[in-house]
Amino acid sequence: MTPPAARRILGRLQVAAMLVAVLAPLAWMVLSSFKVSRDVMALPPRLIFTPTLDNYRELFLRTDFLHNTWNSLVVALGATLLGLVLGAPAAFAIAWHRTTWPATLTLFARMAPGTLFLLPWFILFSQVDLVGTYTVLILTHGAITVPVALWTLLPYFDALPRALIESAQMDGCRPHAILGRIALPLVAPGLVVAAILCFVFTWNYFLFALALSGFDTKTAIVASFNFIGEGVTNWGALMAAATMIALPPLVLALLVQRHLVSGLSSGAVKG
């Protein structure tokens, strides 16, 4: 057996290695956003440099990045709402009836590569003149958010005591009232987690918006692609855009941590 001290050091080294692997690209991104292009590409990378806000100035003053961010927000919020509205009742029904195949089916949809959907969707939505609208972006990102919401909420609904639901049935609740008045308030922590995951996944998803957004509805992540030109890439501005895009998911991810601990259903049964 390894002595306890050596084991502790080994454990810390593992954590340190993981932190470096996860945080190094993020740090590189944030630092690069404050560098001039020449410094971004320097080898070996420069840790000491004169910071500049030029990249951010270019991003906000010379491009439509704010409008693109607004588009991302509309699409992410819309798709999150769609995911919850469809995913929550589905998860509740699946948990209640203990029938898991519909959930598995949605998982397949989530696992399939996005390119699989693109061509049929493009043809379909072109024919009904929807390509380039918020509607099409929200609808298509539903393919991501519905499975995410469903699978996040499933264990929360599973954990609800069945007697609570039966009690609500006896009290005169129809299914929609059971969901709205009893089940959803009790899985509120799960709803928060599901909402944040849906938002982050949609916010970061590139492919659907690339193919289906229009000039006015281009999302931030697609717009940031404009900094990659033929032969020349504006690395500084690209990193500034990437930093701005990464900010909301980062903040939300920190919030998820606090909500992961659920405890609302204590006191429902027994003593």
Binding site: P161, E166, S167, I182, L186, L264, K270
Partner: peptide
């Protein structure tokens, strides 16, 4: 008939009170 249409009330073993 659904439970609520039967004009009955039930006391559950685990009480089943709505915690919220």
């Amino acid at each position: 008939l659904a439970p609520w249409q039967r004009d009955i009330a039930m006391v559950f073993q685990d009480y089943a009170l709505y915690p919220h």
